[in-house]
Design a protein around this nucleic acid. Structure first.
Lengths: 216, 216
DNA sequence: TTATATTAATCAATCGTTTGATTAATTTTG
DNA sequence: CAAAATTAATCAAACGATTGATTAATATAA
């Protein structure tokens, strides 16, 4: 049946995604992946052509998922500049905890810095996200809500960087925070809301121009 | 002479550090490293025992360098709480641009998340740095200079995370910033001071409680 | 049957490492 | 001092193991 084939391919993709994220592309052998997925080694080449084809297939699946849930915050005309930032951060925080292994894979791939069809595609997608965020901040600056000297690029790096640092240094971060970063439930219940609150509390005083209706 | 041997070992370590940082541990072959270093393949095993031994030697060399320039900011009794933060950030920013390849290697190793003698040692060193920073912030909170609800752990992740994100996504960041992140001179002249200024401008309003004697 | 799915066996290539031989440098001996 | 003995450094070649990939045979399903 066709459904079974899709299920099996999806299962292989799931396992491969986890293994790649754990030991990297070069560190993962086709035997390791097929073994953990419980399928014959040759099936990887049968379904995906090659090890690299499997790697690409993982990205294509996720990229397809991304596109289906793209939301254009900028078109939302009503909310204030800061309201858009809040909305963006909410979206971002919600998204990053939904596909942990892939996020790590993606980051590893980018950090290798080698060009290629895949990297170009990924970079383009990420740049679109970045530019959407830029526009929010720049609009806020133009409207007088945000400081004129706000460093848009670094703000962006701040939002993305904090989470990456914590997720990619699991032991240091677990020691820092006092609970296991690799534990998914603890991550979602304790970490997620805290990250959201921190980002908002951090960026607001840096970004938003205080109006003096608070006396002083 | 002994000097030549040390020079040659050091040269191999330099090359290996760069190669490892570019393609990762598994992606780097002993033939590749020895080839680029211009030495016979067997010399790697002769000097360092194994590929992993070479990898460890790179860390040992850097760790030895770290210890030699450890400065205890907390013992500096005179400066204010915010002054210590400034000093810490200055130190941090200065340091990270002095050994770029190693920083990337280190981060790759940590993100693999596999325990071992090396990882334990690295984690311990990083945790010491983290705790030193914690103490600065906590002292500031106790003295009333900093907000009581400041999230120490996330502040830490902010400082470390921003730089890691930018350095590990070279193409996205180069597009963002409008100049080549991988260019060392541009990095030091344009990027370094900007990172410093941003970190200070970002953290100050989040951290420091404004006293009203500045009227403004 | 025919087409698709799955398997074990096998492939050449590359991996990290080891070997034995050779040269260069240093130490010991007479 | 010079000759002999010892150690250190370097090399090309080869090792066994593992890699990703392919084959030919078999099983399953339509």
């Amino acid at each position: 049946m066709d459904k079974d084939k899709i299920d099996k391919k999806d299962h292989i993709l799931d396992v491969a995604e986890r293994v790649f994220s754990e030991v990297g592309f070069d560190g993962a052998s086709t035997r390791m992946i097929s073994g953990e997925a419980g399928v014959n080694m040759a099936m990887l080449n049968y379904y995906f052509g090659s090890k690299e084809g499997l790697f690409l297939a993982i990205f294509e699946r996720r990229i397809a998922m991304f596109k289906s849930l793209l939301v254009d915050i900028n078109s939302d005309g009503q909310t204030t500049a800061w309201g858009k930032i809040e909305k963006y951060i909410d979206m971002y925080v919600e998204r990053i905890f939904s596909n942990n292994c892939f996020q790590k894979m993606l980051y590893q791939e980018l950090s290798m810095g080698k060009r290629g069809e895949l990297s170009d595609k990924i970079n383009k997608i990420l740049l679109n996200n970045v530019k959407e965020f830029f526009k929010i901040v720049e609009d806020g600056i133009d409207s007088g809500d945000f400081r004129k000297d706000a460093d848009v690029q670094f703000i962006c790096a701040t939002i993305y960087g904090i989470k990456n640092y914590i997720m990619n240094t699991p032991y240091v971060s677990s020691e820092m925070f006092g609970f296991d970063i690799k534990d998914d439930t603890a991550l979602k219940e304790k970490f997620k809301p805290r990250l959201r609150n921190y980002l908002l509390a951090l960026l607001k005083p840096y970004l938003v121009i205080e109006h003096d209706h608070t006396n002083k």
